[in-house]
Nucleic acid binder design. Structure first.
Lengths: 336, 336
DNA sequence: TTGTACGCGTTATCAT
DNA sequence: ATGATAACGCGTACAA
């Protein structure tokens, strides 16, 4: 006969109740208190806690969730978490949530359907740079906080106004006498870069058009620094020398780094020959050569607000739409 | 009378059953099939699916989890997700898991207790660079796959043998006639750097001692590139010039970048005056100036294996310990 | 303090 | 071959 007992069923409240000589209700009250404010006598309470401790009892989260309708989990949705900017948002949100007793489940790709309250075990969601709101069409039934540069104003949101920021960046380039500013962005699925609704792109389009300058686009197919590097290599071959840009405004810092390194590798002086401005403010940029001038997004603040909005909404489902618009800061370093 | 109905309770299987004129069991069979292989006739099946679709029914994940004991969620544990290497692991694991119908909940910090199966809604966990195994002491009751350079061989694991890799890096430095190699690491909580059990540090200690060379340590208090930068600044001031290292081996690439930039900023030639070797192989390193020589960890492969091990363990709890040890590759670029 | 209904899907067992 | 009945998983919270 093996001493190893049969695969142990985790202890449940019935076990605790039996061993402590009380009912399951009392066990529950010890762990959760009760609505009416009444309190379990210290003696019983201690006894129950002692038993629970000794057999390693902890209330089953799933059962609790089924009964209360709360999972104490939120979803964080972004295109990718392997990207420094989103990774940093995750870092912030996760530590805020964890501090308040919530778990964070990460979701990326897929459709809005994935935010189905029944299907995804989450009480709410923070969605980054994507317009997802509960509608009749999709299955999104949990409260959503929309966050980032591309946000949905019809739900709680923490927007970041990159329109104004981009204009500031363009003004900066103008002050440095840059005449041929190009915009560089990942091509993605959202149609041609030049027609994207992104605030950065709109601001570039509006401003440059108003000035009567030519719109110049660099569309980068493949994600990552090397994707940007390769795209610029091809671009540099394809475009006639007299028509090459003297500055690049980039959708994000990762892209900017790719361009920067290509320019460096090819003996072009940055910013004298070609200036580069990024967006996001990831630490890596400040450690580039030259250090990247960039539009710094207030990630910490945005995360804090997003989390606060979501927590509030969970507590008070009927509060009016919560809104905050933050502004990025143009940090001028060496690259422009 | 408002047309807005009362806050809608999400539809459940009883609703579907009623509208389709069948029992809840049949509804369930349509969604899950039945054990005995019997099949629901096409006619009824279509009817049920149509009803379900029309009222937006989807099986409640929590109830399902309570009954089956499966959440279809796994936990991924690491020290931080805001760091490029861990972020990249997350990216891989998340997309693998999602493809197999699992959600990923991210956990960091805290104690092993957080992996309590009852407390954390997860069927299993992948733990990176941390020794956490189910023991009598903690509440870890779910299967754990230990992954990374610092792993636990008593459970399923995908180890990365940085001992051998570090020796290769040291050999490389020797071939470049570097005589005074220092090891740079984050100080962290695990005691003095020089006494850490990390394979990289052990390999450095063993090798350099055997050669009869001096062990040189740079302990970095504050995380991030700028933490490393500042630490090296202080170090450079404190150490007498004739005793300064001519090479740094770094615990990871982020640290290496910080050192690299300090050296660059201070007119030291890399690698001629001081060589730098990192560890991890994050893309950023290849885009540094000079490009970072580094020990590249096989993240994609390791993630794939970890996920496969976990899936297997969930399906067959009793398989013998699954083990894989991968080797990193020293990629020589400009910095050493 | 306790008995008990409830949240909701699953599945073994029983009935046509 | 089809489908229904009912017990079950586990904690919560109301009525007593």
């Amino acid at each position: 006969m093996l001493s190893r007992s049969v695969p142990k069923r985790p202890p449940n409240s019935t076990d605790v109740a039996a061993l402590a000589g009380v009912s399951r209700a009392t066990v529950s009250y010890v762990f959760n208190g009760r609505r009416d404010g009444a309190t379990v006598p210290a003696a019983t309470r201690e006894r129950i806690l002692a038993v629970a401790e000794s057999i390693g009892y902890r209330p089953n989260r799933t059962a609790r969730a089924l009964k209360t309708g709360r999972t104490n989990t939120i979803a964080l949705w972004s295109a990718s978490f392997a990207t420094p900017y989103y990774a940093s948002v995750l870092g912030h949100v996760q530590s805020l949530a964890q501090a308040d007793g919530y778990e964070v489940v990460v979701v990326s790709g897929g459709s809005a359907d994935a935010l189905d309250s029944a299907y995804l075990p989450a009480d709410g969601a923070i969605v980054i740079d994507k317009k997802i709101a509960p509608t009749a069409q999709n299955h999104v039934t949990v409260p959503v906080v929309s966050m980032g540069a591309y946000f949905d104003p019809s739900v709680d949101h923490v927007g970041i106004d990159l329109y104004a920021g981009t204009i500031a960046a363009l003004a900066h380039l103008e002050s440095r006498h840059k005449k041929r500013v190009a915009y560089a962005a990942w091509s993605g699925s959202a149609g041609d870069v030049s027609e994207r609704k992104d605030d950065r792109i709109r601001a570039y389009r509006d401003t440059v058009s108003r000035r009567g300058d030519t719109l110049r686009w660099l569309s980068v197919e493949s994600r990552g620094r090397s994707g940007a590097y390769d795209a610029l290599r091809d671009f540099w071959r394809a475009v006639p020398p007299h028509d090459l840009p003297d500055a690049f405004l980039c959708l994000d810092d990762v892209l900017a780094v790719g361009l920067l390194v290509f320019l460096r590798d090819n003996g072009l002086r940055v910013p004298a020959d070609v200036a580069v401005i990024g967006c996001d403010g990831i630490e890596e940029g400040a450690f580039q050569y030259p250090p990247l001038t960039t539009l710094v997004q207030p990630v910490a603040e945005a995360s804090r607000l997003a989390w606060r909005f979501l927590l509030r909404r969970l507590a008070e489902p009927d509060v009016p739409i919560q809104s905050a618009i933050l502004t990025p800061e143009l940090v001028v370093r060496g690259s422009a």
